[in-house]
Deep mutational scan, measured.
Amino acid sequence: VGDQVLEIVPSNEEQIKNLLQLEAQEHLQLDFWKSPTTPGETAHVRVPFVNVQAVKVFLESQGIAYSIMIED
Rank of each mutant, 00 (worst) to 15 (best):
Val1Thr: 15
Val1Met: 13
Val1Ala: 14
Gly2Met: 08
Gly2Ile: 07
Gly2Glu: 08
Gly2Gln: 13
Gly2Cys: 07
Gly2Ala: 10
Asp3Trp: 13
Asp3Asn: 13
Asp3Thr: 11
Asp3Tyr: 11
Asp3Ile: 13
Asp3Phe: 15
Asp3Gly: 14
Asp3Pro: 07
Gln4Thr: 14
Gln4Phe: 12
Gln4Arg: 07
Gln4Gly: 03
Gln4Asn: 04
Gln4Pro: 10
Gln4Ala: 13
Val5Gln: 05
Val5Ser: 06
Val5Lys: 06
Val5Met: 10
Val5His: 09
Val5Ala: 04
Val5Ile: 11
Leu6His: 00
Leu6Pro: 00
Leu6Ala: 01
Leu6Phe: 14
Leu6Lys: 00
Glu7Arg: 09
Glu7Ser: 13
Glu7Asn: 08
Glu7Thr: 10
Glu7Phe: 07
Ile8His: 00
Ile8Tyr: 01
Ile8Arg: 00
Ile8Gly: 00
Ile8Phe: 04
Val9Pro: 01
Val9Trp: 12
Val9Phe: 11
Val9His: 10
Val9Asp: 03
Val9Thr: 08
Pro10His: 01
Pro10Asp: 01
Pro10Phe: 10
Ser11Arg: 11
Ser11Leu: 13
Ser11Cys: 08
Ser11Asp: 10
Ser11Trp: 11
Ser11Phe: 09
Asn12Asp: 13
Asn12Gly: 04
Asn12Val: 02
Glu13Asp: 10
Glu14Asp: 11
Glu14Arg: 06
Glu14Ala: 11
Glu14Lys: 08
Glu14His: 07
Gln15His: 08
Gln15Gly: 02
Gln15Lys: 02
Gln15Ala: 05
Gln15Met: 04
Gln15Pro: 00
Ile16Arg: 04
Ile16Leu: 14
Lys17Phe: 10
Lys17Glu: 11
Lys17Cys: 06
Lys17Trp: 10
Lys17Ala: 12
Lys17Tyr: 13
Asn18His: 14
Asn18Ala: 15
Leu19Gly: 01
Leu19Gln: 00
Leu19Met: 04
Leu19Arg: 00
Leu20Val: 07
Leu20Ile: 08
Gln21Val: 12
Gln21Asn: 11
Gln21Lys: 13
Gln21His: 13
Gln21Phe: 15
Gln21Ala: 13
Gln21Tyr: 14
Leu22Val: 03
Leu22Phe: 09
Leu22Tyr: 06
Leu22Lys: 03
Leu22His: 03
Glu23Asp: 07
Glu23Asn: 13
Glu23Cys: 07
Glu23Leu: 13
Ala24Tyr: 09
Ala24Leu: 12
Gln25Gly: 05
Gln25Phe: 09
Gln25Tyr: 10
Gln25Leu: 11
Glu26Asn: 14
Glu26Pro: 12
His27Met: 06
His27Lys: 07
His27Thr: 07
His27Ser: 14
His27Ala: 08
His27Gly: 14
Leu28Cys: 05
Leu28Ile: 06
Leu28Lys: 03
Leu28Val: 04
Leu28His: 03
Gln29Gly: 14
Gln29Ser: 09
Gln29Arg: 14
Gln29Asp: 09
Gln29Thr: 07
Gln29Ile: 05
Leu30Lys: 01
Leu30Pro: 01
Leu30Val: 11
Leu30Phe: 04
Asp31Phe: 07
Asp31Leu: 07
Asp31Trp: 07
Asp31Glu: 09
Phe32Gly: 02
Phe32Arg: 02
Phe32Tyr: 05
Phe32Lys: 02
Trp33Cys: 07
Trp33Ala: 07
Trp33Val: 14
Trp33Tyr: 15
Lys34Leu: 06
Lys34Asp: 05
Lys34Gly: 05
Lys34Glu: 07
Lys34Phe: 05
Lys34Asn: 08
Ser35Val: 14
Ser35Lys: 14
Ser35Tyr: 15
Ser35Ile: 15
Pro36Trp: 03
Pro36Asn: 02
Pro36Ile: 05
Pro36Thr: 04
Thr37Val: 06
Thr37Lys: 05
Thr37Met: 04
Thr38Phe: 13
Thr38Cys: 06
Thr38Lys: 12
Pro39Gln: 04
Pro39Trp: 04
Pro39Val: 12
Pro39Glu: 04
Pro39Tyr: 04
Gly40Arg: 03
Gly40Ser: 03
Gly40Asp: 04
Gly40Lys: 04
Glu41Thr: 07
Glu41Tyr: 05
Glu41Lys: 08
Glu41Phe: 06
Thr42Val: 14
Thr42Lys: 09
Thr42Arg: 08
Thr42Glu: 04
Ala43Thr: 12
Ala43Ser: 10
Ala43Gly: 04
Ala43Glu: 01
His44Asn: 06
His44Met: 13
Val45Tyr: 02
Val45Ile: 13
Val45Trp: 02
Val45Ala: 04
Val45His: 01
Val45Lys: 00
Val45Pro: 00
Arg46His: 10
Arg46Met: 07
Arg46Ala: 07
Arg46Trp: 08
Arg46Pro: 01
Val47Ala: 02
Val47Asn: 01
Val47Tyr: 00
Val47Ile: 09
Val47Cys: 02
Val47Asp: 00
Val47Thr: 01
Val47Trp: 01
Pro48Tyr: 03
Pro48Gly: 04
Pro48Gln: 05
Phe49Arg: 06
Phe49Ala: 13
Phe49Thr: 08
Phe49Tyr: 12
Phe49Leu: 11
Phe49Glu: 06
Phe49Gly: 15
Phe49Trp: 12
Phe49Ile: 09
Val50Cys: 07
Val50Tyr: 10
Val50Asn: 11
Val50Leu: 14
Val50Lys: 11
Val50His: 13
Val50Asp: 10
Asn51His: 15
Asn51Cys: 06
Val52Asn: 04
Val52Gln: 05
Val52Thr: 06
Val52Ile: 13
Gln53Met: 12
Gln53Ile: 10
Gln53Ser: 11
Gln53Trp: 11
Gln53Tyr: 08
Gln53Ala: 11
Ala54Met: 11
Ala54Asn: 07
Val55Ser: 00
Val55Asp: 00
Val55Trp: 01
Val55Thr: 03
Val55Ile: 09
Val55Lys: 00
Val55Gln: 00
Val55Leu: 11
Lys56Asn: 03
Lys56Arg: 10
Lys56Ala: 06
Val57Phe: 13
Val57Gln: 12
Val57Ala: 14
Val57Ser: 14
Val57Thr: 13
Val57Lys: 12
Phe58Ile: 08
Phe58Pro: 00
Phe58Cys: 03
Phe58Gly: 01
Phe58Leu: 07
Phe58Arg: 02
Phe58Tyr: 13
Leu59His: 00
Leu59Ala: 00
Leu59Met: 03
Leu59Phe: 03
Leu59Lys: 00
Glu60Cys: 04
Glu60Pro: 00
Glu60Leu: 05
Glu60Val: 05
Glu60Trp: 04
Glu60His: 08
Ser61Asp: 09
Ser61Phe: 07
Ser61His: 11
Ser61Arg: 09
Ser61Ala: 11
Ser61Gly: 10
Ser61Lys: 11
Gln62Lys: 15
Gln62Cys: 09
Gln62Asp: 02
Gln62Val: 11
Gln62Gly: 05
Gln62Asn: 15
Gly63Glu: 05
Gly63Met: 05
Gly63Ala: 05
Gly63Thr: 03
Gly63Tyr: 04
Ile64Gln: 01
Ile64Asp: 01
Ile64Arg: 00
Ile64Glu: 00
Ile64Trp: 02
Ala65Lys: 13
Ala65Pro: 13
Ala65Glu: 15
Ala65Tyr: 12
Tyr66Thr: 01
Tyr66Asn: 01
Tyr66Gly: 00
Tyr66Phe: 10
Tyr66Gln: 01
Tyr66Glu: 00
Tyr66Ser: 01
Tyr66Val: 03
Tyr66Ile: 01
Tyr66Leu: 01
Ser67Ala: 08
Ser67Glu: 13
Ser67Gln: 10
Ile68Ala: 04
Ile68Cys: 04
Ile68Tyr: 05
Ile68Glu: 06
Ile68Trp: 05
Ile68Pro: 04
Ile68Leu: 08
Met69Lys: 07
Met69Tyr: 10
Met69Trp: 11
Ile70Tyr: 11
Ile70Val: 14
Ile70Asn: 13
Ile70Leu: 13
Glu71Thr: 11
Glu71Gln: 15
Glu71Asp: 14
Glu71Trp: 13
Glu71His: 12
Asp72Arg: 05
Asp72Ala: 13
